[in-house]
């Protein structure tokens, strides 16, 4: 994962040190763990078009 992250950032012309790569990798991996809850979310039923207008869910 570290190598992929380093390659991705450098591919976008973003400078990154080895210590940063380690920290960013750890954070990215912690995000992937949060994603494990996706099993209970039936995303197919969520119409993405409903959310394209930011703030659209807040209505009186």
């Amino acid at each position: 994962m570290k190598e992929i992250i380093e390659k991705t950032l450098k591919g976008k012309n973003i400078k990154v040190t080895q210590s940063e790569v380690a920290a960013i990798t750890a954070q990215w991996e912690s995000f992937q763990k949060l994603k494990s809850g996706f099993d209970i979310a039936n995303l197919d039923e969520s119409d993405i078009a409903l959310t394209h207008n930011l703030g659209s869910d807040c209505r009186e």
Binding site: I5, T8, L9, K12, I14, V16, E20, A23, I24, Q27, W28, F38, A41, N42, L43, S46, D47, I48, L50, T51, D57
Partner: peptide, 27 residues
Amino acid sequence: IRQILKLGELPSAVDYLQAQQIRHQVN
């Protein structure tokens, strides 16, 4: 912030849009 911004270069468009779908479900 430098680290946060570099982290934010990693999610794919699919990651971002799935997050918006979750957002709609939470709402």
